[in-house]
Amino acid sequence: MTTAPKRILMAKTGLDGHWRGPTIVARALRDAGFEVIMVGMVTADEVVRAAIDEDVDLVGLNIGGHVDVAERAIAAIREARPELPIFCGGVVPPWAKKRLEEKGVEVYPPGSQLPEIVDAARRLTRWQAD
């Protein structure tokens, strides 16, 4: 394989320590050949720092609480690296999902199947030039 693996940052916007969901997604992405950089529970500033320093190709946010918190992180990432794609998962009510989708962020609520998420990761990182 001559192309370098794509790098995905996985971060949690809430202060909720449940790890099962992000871990399962991280493993599925690893098994699909991605490098998954896990940063745990981070603020907007922290996720931006990691997105820059790790030169990632995609950011995955796990939302455990209010969508406003996630939106702050999204806005900060977009300011620092406007071209960087972002997708989310986690417990969000339908109205919050719509709000995020209107902002161009794909949302994968509980019950989303792993192949769907992996396909999304492939698609979102495909147009990053090598």
């Binding site: 098994d31 699909a32 050949g33 490098e35 950089i37 896990m38 720092r49 990691a50 790790e54």
Partner: peptide, 22 residues
Amino acid sequence: PSSPLTGGAILGDRVRMHQAAV
């Protein structure tokens, strides 16, 4: 380490360095 099978990896060292995060 990367997975020898898939070429992917889970890199988790940053999690423990959250004091240095910004």
